[in-house]
Design a protein around this nucleic acid. Structure first.
Lengths: 185, 185
DNA sequence: TCGCAGGTATACTGATCGGTGAACTTTTCC
DNA sequence: GGAAAAGTTCACCGATCAGTATACCTGCGA
């Protein structure tokens, strides 16, 4: 990635997330990144591809944060809830909800290159939950993983509400893990 | 509401939900409802107010469906989960997620008239859960209500995924209610 | 020294954006 | 019957939309 490309992507991330994808024009992104519109199109080809690149960048950063949180937990039983730790850290600075859910809301076209990135991200998390639950020796890891994903997404979706749903979410998640740990064969 | 106004609102509902609010222009709505743009502005004043009217209409319809589902359940213990019945019915025809969550994703401006409608809708549901839980004699109705809302929103947020998260959500919700019923004082 | 990739500058396309002005017709209701 | 409300027609506004054309400049590696 060229220096100009990085600046474009950085500006796109901020603007797309804060103001919405459809609401932000390529002219504004070019201006904010101190780059000509021509350069933007030379790097990314189209707005749709830039949107896809934006989400891919987000996905990469988010996964890195989650992996870091997982490794910060010593015991496997605690590691299952590590994605929720990462979520807490994440939402401190990202108060406009989940970029992937928002993108799915804004881009109905099933063939849009950004959609599968967003979907993949959620499936990746589901899979991670299941792996972590298996390693911790939980009973029925697949079921537990599905439930943890539900709580995770629920907390994100209710972020705009004047409630501390993240804490509620983590509390219930902890209970579910405890039960799954105690009832193992 | 005048006949033209109703047609405008109907067209706006369909277009805004299916394609996204920002992506749909007033010209298209006017054309679809067989009405002049002038009439649209005479009725609703601005696009922002039309968006607010669209969400208010949705909120009203959704609440009616939920109330109906609540009354369809005989025992108070079953009524607690009635909003999930309504959700199942609703998502059969509304596959583009939650109009309110989507609207919050698309409209970052905190002063937008549509935002408080969306927020109120979620708080209304939380409150309903608590009332139903109280009537059913559940222990800790407020905590249970918060958890049910989390599951409800989680199921909606994960609707684009190729998973049957609604069933998982309902199953866990049922378990939570059962526990809250059995542990009552 | 040549060539090429990365980038700039500027101007442009046709379409669409939300919103308005002014004059005219139709419906409704007292 | 008369007035007000509802709706139409059509032209218009400046701004912005995604995307392109052409020409030029710069640094770097072969």
């Amino acid at each position: 990635m060229t220096p100009a490309g990085r600046r474009i992507l950085a500006a796109a991330e901020e603007l797309f997330y804060d103001r919405g994808i459809t609401a932000v024009g390529v002219d504004l992104i070019a201006e904010r990144s101190g780059v000509t519109k021509r350069t933007l199109y030379n790097r990314f080809g189209s707005k749709d591809h830039l949107v896809a690149a934006y989400l891919a960048e987000r996905a990469q950063r988010w996964r890195a944060l989650v992996r870091q949180a997982v490794e910060a937990r010593d015991r496997p039983a605690d590691a299952v809830l590590a994605p929720f730790d990462a979520l807490r850290t994440w939402t401190d600075t990202h108060t406009r909800g989940c970029a992937f859910i928002n993108a799915l809301a804004e881009l109905p076209d099933p063939s849009h290159p950004a959609r599968h990135i967003a979907v993949d991200q959620k499936l990746w998390l589901l899979n991670l939950f299941e792996e972590l639950a298996t390693e911790a020796g939980c009973s029925d890891p697949a079921v537990l993983a599905g439930r943890l994903l539900l709580l995770h997404e629920g907390a994100l979706a209710t972020q705009p509400l004047p409630l501390d749903t993240l804490s509620e979410s983590i509390e219930l998640a902890r209970t579910l893990v405890r039960i799954a740990m105690s009832s193992r064969p």
